[in-house]
Design a protein around this nucleic acid. Sequence first.
DNA 1: ATGACGGTGTGGCACCGA
Length: 260
Amino acid sequence: MKITTWNINSLAVRLPQVLDWLAANPVDVLCLQELKLSDDKFPLQALQAAGYHSAVFGQKNYNGVAILSRTPARDVIKNIAGFADEQSRVIAATLDSPLGELRVVNGYFVNGQAPGTDKFAYKMRWLTGLRDWLVGELAAHPNLVLLGDFNITADDRDTYDPDGLRETIHHTSEERAHFQALIDLGLVDAFRLFAQAEKSYSWWDYREMAFRRNLGLRIDHILVRSGLQPSVEHCAIDRLPRKNERPSDHAPVTLTLKSL
DNA sequence: ATGACGGTGTGGCACCGA
């Protein structure tokens, strides 16, 4: 069972790349962020033809998330219950898997711009709302995976310049405390369960040839319920799509689960 | 260096992302 998260930075632009990637990587679930289109513009039929059902929470221009799956999604929830939000950032769904029912929570976390700004304050409130809501989700769903574009580096290994970028956006103590609060709900960072190459990143700026120089951040994460840990077979970043023409600035990250 | 690149519509520039 393979589950992937990928911020595609406009599905309208990147649909051909998504279809190509799925043809080469026929994962069971693909969680997308930054669709940048409304529900009525979502390419439901093209993805259906590729063999995927879609649960979609779109938004014109910005944000937008979707869960593509081989089997239909159930109990779909959009955004964080109890947290009023104008922006389409979270979609959760229950899927059948060889491990039983799997709850998938797909998030496009707030960027936050810079510490001290209104957007940063929104990020902090949003992260608190997410955590509070997940307490109930975890109580209701034993097998839960939280994944997406977190817009947070978990620690210094996740950034190309830990000293130069210390306490800047994606690197602040407050953001990392929120990341830890999610871990403390009983989740584990699947990527770090395995030996990984140094300087493993999931995002690179479009500017300054950042990808070629590997000046990146690891901000796309997959957290799994610690009870699922024995089932986690692998977790890896696929840098290949970043080499496409007109790539997303993010690379897909894939979790492989095995039946025990 | 409030830069850079690439997405969007309010468009021929401004705003946003990370």
